[in-house]
C-alpha cells in the first residue's frame, strides 16, 4: 500500500524527467516507426498536387515561434511541394512575429528549387485588421497590399501581374495556432468560395474537423502528426518525421502514467472503503 500511495503522490519533477528522457532517447538512436497517412492530410496533398503549373497559392502565416515545432515543418513541406509543382506562392501574415518564419521557409525552398523572389513567390507582409483584410481581398488584394514586405510596389512584381482577388488564387493554406483558419473559412471560404487547407497545431485541430465534414476545408494537417504525414507524402523527411518516434514514445509513457495513476487511486479508494 505504501508503494501505491507513493505512486499517487510522486514528485512531478520525476515525471518531467521521465518525459524528457523518453523524448530524448528515440531522438538520439534515430529509430523510425511506420504510420498511416490520414484522409485529411491526403486530401490536402491531393488538392495541392492536382493544381496545374503556374497556379497561385496563398500561404497565410498565422503562427509564431511558440508553435514553430508544429507549424513550421508544414510550411516547409508545402513550400517544397508547391515549388516542385511550379506553383506560385503569395505569403501573407496575420501574426507579425511569424512573418520571418514564413519568409525563411520560402527562401529555403526557393534556394533549393531555383525560384526567384517576385517571379515565383512574394512576401506581402503583415497588415493589421485581419477580418477586414480577408473580406476586402475578395475585391482587390492591392487595396491592402499595395507594397510587399520590402516596400516594393506589387505591380512591379511579375508574380502579382494577374492576381487581384480570390478568383486568381487556386488554394489558400493557413498555418495557424489560433482561430485564424475558422476566420478564413467564414470570410474567404463562405463568401468567395475560396478553397482552404488548414495546417494547425494539435490544440486547434479538433475544432476544425466539423469543417472537414461540411466540405468547408479541403484538407487538414493537425499537429506534428499532420506535418509528418505531409512529409511522407512528398517523400521528404523533415523535423516532423524525425520527431514522430519521440512523440509516440512520449504518448506511450503518458498513457502508462494515466493507467498507473487511475489503478493506484482505485486501490486506495477500495482500501479506505474496506477500512470503514
Amino acid at each position: 500500500m505504501k508503494f501505491v500511495k507513493w505512486l499517487t503522490s510522486v514528485d512531478r519533477r520525476i515525471i518531467f524527467l521521465l518525459v524528457i528522457l523518453v523524448v530524448l532517447v528515440p531522438m538520439l538512436i534515430t529509430i523510425s516507426i511506420p504510420f498511416e497517412v490520414g484522409e485529411p492530410a491526403q486530401n490536402a496533398f491531393n488538392a495541392m498536387d492536382s493544381l496545374p503549373p503556374g497556379s497561385v497559392v496563398m500561404f497565410s502565416v498565422d503562427y509564431d515561434a511558440t508553435s514553430y515545432p508544429e507549424c513550421h515543418p508544414m510550411i516547409v513541406a508545402m513550400t517544397h511541394h508547391a515549388f516542385k509543382k511550379d506553383l506560385k506562392i503569395i505569403l501573407v501574415a496575420n501574426i507579425a512575429t511569424g512573418l520571418p518564419l514564413g519568409q525563411e521557409a520560402l527562401e529555403r525552398g526557393a534556394a533549393e528549387h531555383g525560384k526567384e523572389y517576385g517571379v515565383d513567390y512574394v512576401n506581402l507582409g503583415y497588415r493589421p485588421g485581419m477580418v477586414a483584410i480577408m473580406v476586402g481581398m475578395g475585391r482587390e488584394i492591392r487595396d491592402f497590399y499595395a507594397q510587399d514586405y520590402a516596400n516594393a510596389n506589387v505591380d512591379s512584381l511579375p508574380v502579382m501581374q494577374n492576381v487581384h482577388n480570390y478568383d486568381d488564387i487556386a488554394l489558400l493554406v493557413s498555418f495557424a495556432h489560433g482561430m485564424q483558419v475558422e476566420t478564413w473559412i467564414a470570410y474567404a471560404g463562405a463568401r468567395f468560395g475560396q478553397q482552404i487547407i488548414g495546417g494547425v497545431t494539435g490544440v486547434v485541430a479538433p475544432d476544425l474537423y466539423p469543417y472537414l465534414q461540411s466540405g468547408q476545408l479541403v484538407g487538414l494537417l493537425g499537429g506534428l502528426k499532420g506535418a509528418s504525414e505531409y512529409e511522407s507524402l512528398i517523400n521528404r523527411k523533415g523535423l516532423a518525421s524525425r520527431g514522430m518516434p519521440a512523440q509516440s514514445a512520449a504518448h506511450i509513457l503518458i498513457i502508462l502514467l494515466i493507467v498507473i495513476g487511475s489503478i493506484s487511486e482505485f486501490i486506495i479508494n477500495a482500501h479506505s472503503r474496506r477500512k470503514k
Partner: peptide, 15 residues
C-alpha cells in the same frame, strides 16, 4: 490533441 501538441513543442526544443 493537446498532449500531442505540448509534447511536439518539447520535441522541437530538445531537437
Amino acid at each position: 490533441y493537446t498532449v500531442m501538441s505540448r509534447v511536439s513543442l518539447l520535441i522541437g526544443r530538445l531537437y
